[in-house]
Design a binder for these strands. Structure first.
Length: 647
RNA sequence: GCCGAUGUGGCUCAAUGGCAGAGCAGCUCAUUCGUAAUGAGCAGGUUGUCGGUUCGAUUCCGACCAUCGGCUCCA
């Protein structure tokens, strides 16, 4: 007998009992809901025989690991359906992901929407069949020969990587379908009550663009149909905020086929928001000790050879001239600002008394992104970033890093995106010798330093291996768009290498020459991307201080025009971006239009207002909030702008 | 760059191997109106571009361009 500690109880069982059997004994409700378990804190399959005293915790769909198990099983059901309908298909991998699951297949048939529908129908059959899911193990040799027998070459490759660990290889069987898998899985297929295949795309085997492109089917699954429905509605709602749609509808930006891909045109409204952000950022940076530079948009190839861009980033640059003709002058548009601001540092000899030296620049950059990568305002070929480089002594590094992070957080809070970001500590990949400059010693040292700073500042980061810049590690502040895709909004990087490339130094207090540490950073990110995320955040309804048009005076009839202009002048004199709508339309019509354009305030003026010197205030989202004296309203609104209120 | 989808007036969407149509927006006129759509009229298109098949292509085929969702890459 063994003792098993459960949630509120310790019970005795026969040796070899499984958590699934224990759950069944506890009650039908638990048995129905349980997805996986933790044995002594380790996630395990419900069919794991218990051989020693232990602690067992049951996981349901409400638990992160239970949810993963549930959706992982859904991906197996998909794979089974594919194998039934298209037996020649080879299986790659099929994990659960944040909002569902996917499965990668190698098939000669192109999966279309039609096929997805058929697969869904087949999956429903598999669920109805209530197939028991059973786990078994094979030796690596047997596992390989079994998989070779059925032509699952991708599985063979995966097993071979595990073979030298000396462990058995686990498999799961549901009906006729057998799948290499570490598990855990649900007890049977009937539990996957509600699912949907959402899309089919290409994906490289093992995420490597040198490998074959497979077909990836994405899906999601829930225990109840109502939960699936809610999720799909939520997705649809989120997509209504897509900046690429409403940003165009509301005339923030547009694109032109004759200008080219990744080169959006910022229309007056988009340009205005960016101008407001830019002024705010430059002023704030000045307050915090940053000095503005204006450096050239292009430079000779020689600069990029020193910085390493020529060897490590040439594909990403727009080159003017023949890069292969060493005889003739060759220029390139700048993809980053660093080497330019370093030249500013190099302008004269530097002393430790000059440090920290903080340079900021509203910097337009050009990157020749591959054609399939552009996306609205989020991923473009020309963008303007609140860029900065800071040179400091080793002793100053932590404080200065903190200073940069505080600035970034201040910006995020001010524009209202602080709650929506996550942190990624982007490190190099020691195995990737092509991408990075510097030695392992240099990388390890600077990553240790950065890790210590982040831990000290209690930043809750995830590590991203291979996400570093070619010259150093980064703290990336990540944000998701309405499709759930994550992008970097802000980045703060420590660069231990380029000071050496550029021979940057300072004279220390003891008279010796030393290399400065360099921090690369943005404070609000690049304006185009930040604008995109703001459009999505506010669904185009910008807070008063950022709204391109803040106030619109709406006269009821032509006889109120004079008074309307009088009010308008007062508003403009107070510094507001305001307009008046003098068209011969009914009030309701003008209001509807102002409302659709997401104006923060509409100021209606008619006989009553003209007589009393008031305005009737309609607030976006709230409707008519009553009459106010013009000056009272101006004071109220000015205050909101000054405080950068987000409502 | 790769996989897949899409491309018809500013927008939303019809239709068809044989004259491309509607609503909204725009313009004109009338209406002067109290918190999300007043009415009438007018104008607007080489159906993304270029090529091919065909008596005839917007429709079928191909290439390119652009847009969208992924992958890779990246702020």
């Amino acid at each position: 007998m063994i003792k098993v500690a459960l949630k509120n109880d310790v019970k005795e069982f026969e040796i070899g009992i499984t958590p699934l059997e224990i759950a069944k004994g506890i009650g039908a409700g638990l048995y129905k809901a349980v997805c996986a378990c933790k044995i002594d804190g380790v996630v395990a399959d419900l069919r794991t025989p218990l051989t020693n005293d232990c602690n067992v915790e049951f996981l349901t769909f409400e638990d992160e690991d239970g949810k993963k198990t549930f959706r992982h099983t859904a991906s197996h059901i998909l794979a089974q359906a594919v194998k039934r309908l298209y037996p020649k298909t080879k299986l790659a991998i099929g994990p659960s992901i944040e909002d569902g699951f996917y499965y990668d297949f190698d098939s000669e048939i192109t999966f279309t929407q039609d096929i997805l529908d058929k697969l869904e129908a087949e999956m429903k059959k598999i669920v109805k069949e209530e197939l028991q899911i059973e786990k078994f193990e094979l030796s690596p040799e047997d596992a390989i020969s079994e998989m070779e027998k059925i032509g699952e070459t991708y599985k063979v490759e995966l097993i071979k990587e595990h073979a030298d660990k000396g462990e058995n290889i686990s498999f799961y069987r549901q009906g006729e379908f057998v799948e290499l898998c570490a598990g855990p899985h649900l007890p049977d297929t009937s539990r996957v009550k509600a699912f949907k295949l959402t899309q089919c795309t290409g994906a490289y085997w093992r995420g490597d663009s040198n490998n074959k492109m497979l077909q990836r089917i994405y899906g999601t699954a829930f225990p109840k149909q109502s939960e699936l429905d809610d999720y799909l509605i939520m997705l649809e709602e989120a997509r209504k905020r897509d900046h690429n749609k409403i940003g165009r509808e509301l005339d923030f930006f547009t694109t032109s086929e004759v200008i080219g891909q990744g080169l959006p045109i910022l229309l007056p409204k988009g340009a205005r928001v960016i101008q407001l952000l830019q002024r705010f950022v430059e002023d704030e940076e000045q307050k915090r000790g940053w000095q503005l530079t204006k450096t050239p948009y292009m430079a000779k190839r020689e600069l990029y050879k020193i910085s390493g861009h020529w060897d490590h980033y040439l594909d990403g640059m727009f080159v003017l001239g023949d890069p292969n003709d060493e005889e003739k002058e060759c220029f390139a548009l700048r993809p980053m600002t660093c080497p330019f601001q370093y030249q500013a540092y190099l302008n004269r000899p530097r002393s430790y008394r000059d440090l920290p030296l903080r340079y900021n620049e509203t910097s337009t950059l050009f990157r020749n992104e591959s054609s399939g990568e552009m996306h609205g305002l989020i991923r473009v070929r020309q963008f303007t970033i609140s860029e900065g480089h800071l040179m400091c002594t080793p002793e100053q590094l932590e404080d200065e890093f903190k200073h940069c992070l505080e600035l970034a957080i201040f910006m995020l809070k001010t524009i209202g995106l602080y709650e929506d970001v996550s942190y990624r500590f982007s490190q190099w990949d020691p195995a990737d010798t092509e991408k990075y400059i510097g030695t392992p010693e240099q990388w390890n040292e600077v990553q240790d330093i950065m890790g210590r700073i982040l831990d000290h500042l209690e930043i809750p980061y995830k590590v991203g291996i291979g996400e570093a810049a070619f010259y150093g590690p980064k703290l990336d502040i990540q944000i998701k768009n309405v499709f759930g895709k994550e992008d970097t909004l802000i980045t703060i990087q420590i660069d231990p290498l380029l000071a050496e490339q550029f021979d940057m130094e300072y004279v220390a207090s003891d008279g010796t020459k030393k290399r400065p540490y360099i921090i690369h950073r943005t404070s609000i990110g690049c304006y185009e991307r930040t604008l995109a995320l703001l459009i999505e955040k506010y669904a185009g309804a910008f807070p008063l201080w950022l709204a391109p048009e803040q106030l619109r005076v709406i006269p009821i009839a032509d006889r109120h025009h004079d008074y309307a202009y009088e009010v308008l002048k007062k508003l403009k004199d107070a510094g507001f971006r305001a307009e008046v709508d003098t068209r011969s339309e009914k009030l309701g019509y003008k209001l509807r239009e102002a409302q659709l354009q997401k104006l923060p305030y509409m100021l209606v003026v008619g006989d009553k207002e003209a007589e009393e010197g008031t305005i009737s205030v309609r607030k976006r989202g709230e409707g008519d909030i009553g009459s106010q004296n013009v000056d009272t309203f101006i004071e109220y609104a000015l205050n909101k702008v000054k405080n950068k209120d987000l409502d």
